[in-house]
Design a protein around this nucleic acid. Structure first.
Lengths: 216, 216
DNA sequence: ACACAGTATACTGTATACAGAAAGAAAGGA
DNA sequence: TCCTTTCTTTCTGTATACAGTATACTGTGT
């Protein structure tokens, strides 16, 4: 029998739904989000919707203006570069920490994720690829005992998501390159080669930055 | 004429009030926060209170458990060490970035802050010292163009606040040492000596960690 | 034509009511 | 005595109603 999912509140669902819409550009930057309006579209009341909006504000995806309708946050190239700068710092530190201690189970998950990435590229399903990319980086943090670091990397990756909108026109070639970089990272981890893992991650982060700046 | 304060919602006030209560230990770790109960105590309805609780959860000061009352988060030594690990990463990166570009105005602010620190110690006003300490580190980020990094360092410093509760018994000797370290940092910055600034900050962060672990 | 007051409207902030889940107490059976 | 089950209570999740504020509009006076 299938267990009914009682763990996902309406607020959770509203959050996820709006997040998708923003990230995928369905809601354009600076668009006003009138609570009653959006709530009706999602089929929930304002209460869970407002909850979702607050969370999205924390993620930097919307801006709340007291007394006025919330807006979809604008996300500039500059923001994106700031984000990747911090993200580099955290992800490089993370991979150095976890490489010696990573579990075989995690490595297996990473292999499977990478396989799925390959398929997504083959199918030209770049939406899935972006999601898998994110998952790949989150998996890398799982074995890090520093939960605070984990949390921040999660945050960075969610925010970074929006950079892919900027990149959407160049996503097809980017995905292949990114896949290759992910592959190198996993290879280094499989060999428990910390120095190599660090290098490949540095390289990956630098390239993400490059792809960003070159896209405009 | 005095402008009427229409900018602080009940939710804001509830947030600030609860934050104070938690940070100052008035609400002890693991204590259950029943919404109706707390709301009544604060003299507001559940709606703004819940808003406040969500925000506090984001700050890591309370934990929400779906369907069950929220709890005041426990803040362990381990958490504290995780925090300082990430904070080190960010603060060291920051100081390397800003030292060559710091404005004379900022240096002056830092000098004044340091002077106030000295006075707080002389007056044995450690509550003020903790606040000035925090301000010192925030001032260091002001000239960093990376607003995301700024934001995170702010976050880290607010969270760290709670570590000082743990430390409260050993605050008196710690403050003097911390003051000395701040002094060295400012000195390096005044000379626009990036390498030295990095070293002094590394030293400072390592010592904060040491003080934490030695306090138990 | 323009400035300005007054009014209508649309939105958020807040309170409250209701439904359903979780925890605890009481009752029944082995 | 202990386990199980049911009932009661208490809590959160959600919907909705209401109040107050900001904005747009309309009309009036100059």
């Amino acid at each position: 029998m299938q267990k009914i999912n009682t763990n996902v509140s309406l607020a959770d669902q509203a959050y996820e739904s709006l997040r998708q819409s923003i990230v995928q550009g369905e809601l354009h930057a600076d668009e006003e989000l009138r609570e009653e309006n959006i709530a009706k579209q999602l089929g929930v009341s304002r209460t869970p919707l407002r909850d979702a909006l607050r969370r999205l504000a924390m993620d930097g995806l919307v801006v709340l203006r007291k007394g006025k309708p919330a807006k979809v946050a604008t996300f500039t190239m500059e923001d994106s570069l700031h984000l990747i700068e911090v993200r580099s710092l955290l992800e490089i530190h993370n991979i150095v920490t976890i490489t010696p201690h990573i579990t075989e189970e995690r490595v297996q998950q990473l292999r499977e994720n990478l396989f799925a990435q390959k398929n997504a590229i083959k199918d030209e399903d770049y939406e899935s690829f972006v999601e898998l990319d994110r998952e790949f980086h989150l998996l890398l943090t799982e074995d890090n005992p520093n939960t605070k670091l984990q949390e921040l990397i999660h945050q960075m990756n969610s925010g970074d998501y929006r950079a892919f909108i900027i990149l959407s026109n160049t996503l097809s070639p980017s995905a292949e390159v990114a896949y290759g970089e992910h592959h190198h990272i996993l290879e280094a981890i499989e060999n428990r080669d910390t120095e190599k893992a660090k290098e490949t991650m540095e390289h990956h982060m630098a390239n993400i930055r490059k792809r960003l700046t070159q896209s405009n």
